[in-house]
Nucleic acid binder design. Structure first.
Length: 698
DNA sequence: CTAGGGTTAG
């Protein structure tokens, strides 16, 4: 038998029944308690709305209850109205929110901070940032909280300038910015390249008597670092504890500082040993890098294409008993993918499996990239097949994998399958598609995808896409069309565009167009020796030795250094590098002996040395000798000598493979019945039975 | 509304 409560307790009973219902998730019963209830206590009506919302009541229901209460003539307090405005935001019901707003103004309601905040959020989401800013300007009482809100909202809407301006105003109003705002503002400065504003924020933080947390300082360090003021970044790091007594950097500051330091090491000395030396100094100050710090170092090295140091840091990290996480693995796989370190990549793949990193989509994507760049497309595809929920980057990586092999048809099939799963392509997808076209010489398909990206997917082509098209048209022999295409481009042609055209002129032996392309290219990249070599190559084909000499002289006059050319191949655990600089390989004699044998073998099969590849006006016999010294030939030969029969030879070269080496490799694959994988500057060559997967266009 | 540092594809 339920005891009837005494009159004075009615409200309390309603309240507890309501809570019971709410706790069981029965919102509408809870509401009924109210509608049929005994009491008309306004405070309770209001708190009901709040509780309803905080127990996760359905937004539509809350709004219904609110309207019902409104009809009953209930007066609302600011908390209840805030709840209603938040509900409006959730439902994107700007119309009702505005009615509430109008009601507030009409009744001269005291708009408190939370209410303004809710209004600002509602207007920003439903109508745009300008109206949110207007609400802010019309709010009479601008407390700290509201300042922070309006700055945050502007940052969220990517109104960086607005946010910075508001920060200035809030300084004048002596409002205290939260640490989060400081962090976000500094990030905005980074995006804007607004270094002076960043410095002002630093000054404001430094001058104020407010205590800032580590994150603020850390982002200050980062903001100096990303703007290239690495010395300042380092000094702030080292002086942090001086600025506030007892204030010690944490692992976060170390990470920020380390990034600065790594870049400092590279930019000042161009070497990672010095970066490591500074890291050691940091350690001697008593700070221990954590997994994030190490990962930052590793990815920093990768960004500077210093893959060996990245791998070195990895072993050092393990020596110091810091466990890698999935982010570290991703960076490391990137370190292997860049220079095609297949064996190392396989090792890290095993490592990650042993340590339980399975089903990580980032790792899987990095694996696809690593295996395709390492020359094992089948394994890359296997990894791809095993991914249950394929994301856009997975598809993109896989497509790019097939593209660099020149397997355009497979790229198209992947694209169609991807679209069938409902994933929308992005700009990178089209780069993969167009790369597939250019490496397979599929001109019609290239045009179709190029037209389709804007028309069907509203993706504007970027310089990468234009570059693919120029490369595609040029390689296919449509040189004039390629030039027209460049002239019709809405954006300014960069070095990749003219470089693609120049390379095409080499294939199709068009010296007039080559000179036009080269003129533009040299203006954009005056110190890139590869460009000069390409033109020199074309002059050599036409035996124009005067021009070759002139070019060589202007290179000397300009101080263009011929960049180091190297090829390498891996035998067991060792990487053997063949380079135009530095010491020769210790087994050089044996290698040349084998190479002579090889050349006489393939001559019988029809190989003729392509002496046009030698840009010196010397005797033809001497030219043939020069050809033999090409690093890719040495690496291939060494592979043949050391890698057991039947296994493919894998060679990586940092620049484009030369035509003679390309021809020779085809014959070698035939003579010795070997698969030869050669990754050069731009793509993959798979030599097999006297043919190359690139169809002789690269 | 406050918490921010290191991950994948050209």
């Amino acid at each position: 038998m339920i005891k009837m409560p005494k009159k004075g307790n009615l409200a309390a009973v309603d309240g507890s029944m309501m809570r019971n219902y709410l706790e069981f998730g029965d919102f509408m019963s809870a509401a009924k308690v109210f509608f049929v209830g005994f009491t008309r206590n306004y405070l309770l009506w209001n708190s009901f709305l709040e509780e309803f919302a905080s127990f996760g009541g359905d937004s539509h229901d809350i709004l219904e209850v609110f309207k019902e209460l409104q009809n009953k003539g209930v007066e609302f307090d600011s908390k209840a109205l805030t709840v209603v405005l938040k509900v409006c935001l959730a439902l994107m019901d700007l119309w009702f929110g505005m009615k509430v707003h109008a009601c507030l103004i009409k009744r001269g309601f005291h708009v408190d901070v939370h209410l303004s905040c809710a209004l600002i959020n509602l207007y920003e989401k439903c109508w745009g940032i300008d109206w949110a800013n207007q609400v802010f300007d019309e709010t009479p009482l601008q407390e700290d909280f509201l300042w922070n809100t309006i700055v945050m909202v502007n940052l969220r809407s990517e109104r960086w300038e607005n946010a910075l301006e508001l920060f200035g105003r809030m300084q004048s109003a002596s409002a205290k910015a939260t640490d989060g705002i400081i962090v976000k503002l500094l990030q905005a400065c980074g995006k804007l390249r607004a270094f002076n504003e960043g410095k002002q924020i630093h000054g404001a933080v430094f001058d104020s008597t407010e205590d800032r947390d580590l994150s603020s300082w850390n982002s200050i360090i980062s903001s100096y670092a990303v703007n290239g003021y690495l010395n300042d970044a380092r000094d702030i790091f080292l002086q942090m504890n001086l600025q506030r007594a007892g204030f010690k950097p944490d692992s976060c500051s170390i990470t920020s500082a380390l990034q600065a330091v790594i870049e400092l090491g590279y930019s000042m000395w161009g070497r990672s040993e010095e970066a490591l030396a500074v890291i050691n100094r940091i350690k001697s100050l008593g700070y221990t890098p954590n997994v994030v710090s190490w990962t930052a170092m590793i990815s920093g090295c990768c960004q500077n294409e210093n893959y060996m140091d990245a791998l070195q840091f990895f072993s050092q990290m393990q020596e110091e008993n810091v466990k890698p996480n999935s982010t570290t693995i991703c960076s490391l796989l990137g370190a292997c993918a860049g220079p095609s370190l297949l064996k190392k990549g396989e090792e890290i793949h095993c490592f990650s499996m042993r340590h339980g990193f399975v089903d990580d989509i980032y790792i899987a994507t990095a694996l696809i990239d690593m295996y395709s760049k390492g020359g094992k497309l089948e394994v890359a595809h296997e990894v791809f097949r095993n991914i249950k929920e394929k994301t856009l980057p997975c598809w993109n990586c896989m497509m790019m994998g097939y593209a660099i092999y020149g397997r355009g048809e497979e790229v198209f099939t992947l694209f169609e399958n991807m679209c069938k799963t409902g994933i929308r392509p992005d700009a990178i997808t089209f780069t993969a598609l167009l790369s597939g076209c250019k490496n397979s010489c599929l001109v019609m398909e290239g045009w179709n995808y190029f037209d389709s990206m804007k028309k069907d997917y509203n993706i504007s082509p970027t310089i990468e896409h234009y570059s693919c098209m120029v490369d595609l048209l040029g390689k296919a022999g449509f040189l004039d069309e390629a030039l027209d295409f460049i002239n019709a481009m809405p954006i300014k042609a960069d070095a990749s565009i003219w470089g693609a055209l120049l390379a095409a002129c080499r294939i199709h032996k068009d010296i007039k167009l080559a000179e036009i392309a080269a003129r533009n290219l040299f203006r954009l990249e005056p110190y890139n020796s590869a460009n000069y070599m390409l033109l020199m190559n074309i002059y050599s084909i036409f035996q124009r030795w005067d021009d070759v000499e002139r070019l060589r002289e202007s290179m000397t006059a300009m101080g263009v250094k011929i960049s180091n050319v190297w090829s390498w191949t891996q035998v067991k655990q060792t990487i053997h590098v063949f380079s135009t600089e530095g010491n020769p390989h210790p087994e050089e004699g044996e290698i040349y002996f084998e190479l002579y044998q090889l050349v006489s073998e393939i001559r019988k099969l029809g190989y003729v040395p392509d002496i046009n590849c030698v840009h010196q006006n010397i005797d033809d016999k001497d030219k043939e000798k020069v050809l033999l010294s090409h690093t890719e030939k040495l690496a291939m030969t060494y592979g043949l000598m050391k890698v057991k029969d039947g296994s493919p030879i894998r060679v990586v070269k940092n620049t484009r493979i030369c035509q003679d080496c390309h021809t020779a490799a085809k014959y070698i694959s035939l003579a010795r019945n070997r698969d030869i994988f050669l990754r050069d500057g731009g793509r993959f060559h798979h030599f097999m039975n006297g043919e190359c997967s690139c169809n002789d266009r690269w």
